[in-house]
Amino acid sequence: MIPTAFEYRRAGSVAEALSLLQEGGPEAKLLAGGHSLIPMMKQRLAEPGLLIDIGGLDELRGIQEDGGEIAIGAAMTHAEIAASDLLRAQAPIVAETAANIGDAQVRNRGTIGGSLAHADPGADLPAVMVALDATIALLGPNGERKVQAEDFFQDILTVDLAEDEIVTGVCFQACRSAAYAKLEQRASKFALVGVAAALSLDGGTCSSARVAVTGASSHAQRLSGVEGALAGASLPDGAASAASGAGDALDFVNEDLHGSEEYRRAMTAVFARRAIEAAAGRS
């Protein structure tokens, strides 16, 4: 399995990467960890003419907290995110999810920016970002643009990102009472179904919630029915009832060897419940 030929430029700065993107036009693709893109290139499902390497850019690195808002640079690897004490303390869902992506080697190379921009239907982090109501920071020729995660993920492998834009990072409010639960597709280790739940808790009562699913459908999306049912629910006892209709509300559900539509809908409810229970257990 060998990719087609391409030109390679290593960008020295985000600004340089942007200008290279503009020069390259539709032929150009950004490369960071490469763990979404390179497998596709090897199978010749992607044949970019120009790769712009942004993997080593310091501007895209770092995990910071400022006034309760946490920002993660796009080039941070899953391993770095998993190991972050800051995240473990203030947004454990993110560290834990990153710690269970793929395998050790994939986590050492794969980046959060790449995972979000590629938007594999079975990727874990998109659901977590939607549940956390994260903002995706994009930089283009006209400056910075911020998109809410739930608007960013649009369809299968499709996100609100122009050809000449770069994902520079994500930011979200610190949140301890959030958890992610997934049913792993055992071969690929992607999520057959994964649900992230972020709860606002008042004692044992849920005042509001954001719940998002990945794997089940074309792209990560909110489970608004579950969110509604959670408002005012007492947890963890009310989790099962709130989650019960989770799968039924999805418009489109993936279907393959590993899970039929019916199974994925059912598992959406199961993993919504598990995520809610785990999140409630965190308070």
């Binding site: 055992r186 071969a187 690929s188 060897l257």
Partner: peptide, 22 residues
Amino acid sequence: FEEVVYDEDGQPVTASFMDYVM
């Protein structure tokens, strides 16, 4: 875990370690 699967057109569904569960 394991099974080689073909669809009704004889196309292999499990042609990589992404789908064939080792």
